[in-house]
């Protein structure tokens, strides 16, 4: 895998995690939890936009690389979720989380090289 492909794989997972969070907030707005319609609409639109971008990037990667190699990068989703909670909300990552992150990181290095 080239460095650029690796970057694209990482970027794809950033898009998935961000898209999921946006859609989640948009749907919370639809349930009538006190958010304005404009806000809800913006989140929904942004979420769908990120997922569309992800979809075409992912299809392009799938046309060039093996699925068994690419799919491992989906394992980054929990890593990015914990990193976001840590960066944005100052949430601490428990030991269990750090062990998970280490295993995912080590595994992806193996997968990227093989």
């Amino acid at each position: 895998m080239t460095a650029f492909t690796l970057f694209l794989c990482l970027f794809c997972q950033v898009l998935v995690v961000a898209g999921n969070l946006l859609l989640k907030h948009a749907m919370a707005g639809m349930d009538g939890q006190g958010r304005s319609r404009v806000h809800t609409g913006l989140w929904l639109f942004a979420g769908i936009a990120l997922f569309s971008l992800w979809f075409f990037l992912w299809l392009d990667l799938l046309s060039k690389y093996e699925l068994s190699q690419l799919y491992a990068f989906e394992g980054l989703a929990p890593v990015f979720l914990m990193a976001s909670a840590w960066l944005i909300l100052g949430e601490k990552v428990p030991l269990r989380g750090w062990i998970g992150v280490s295993l995912i990181g080590a595994g992806l290095m193996l997968v990227a090289g093989a």
Partner: peptide, 24 residues
């Protein structure tokens, strides 16, 4: 090598499930 990597990612994702759900 890839099989070992995939296995390691799987165990990592499984372990990180609870803390990443809290984050989510």
């Amino acid at each position: 090598g890839r099989a070992l990597g995939i296995l390691s990612v799987f165990v990592g994702v499984f372990l990180a499930a609870a803390p990443s759900a809290v984050a989510d």
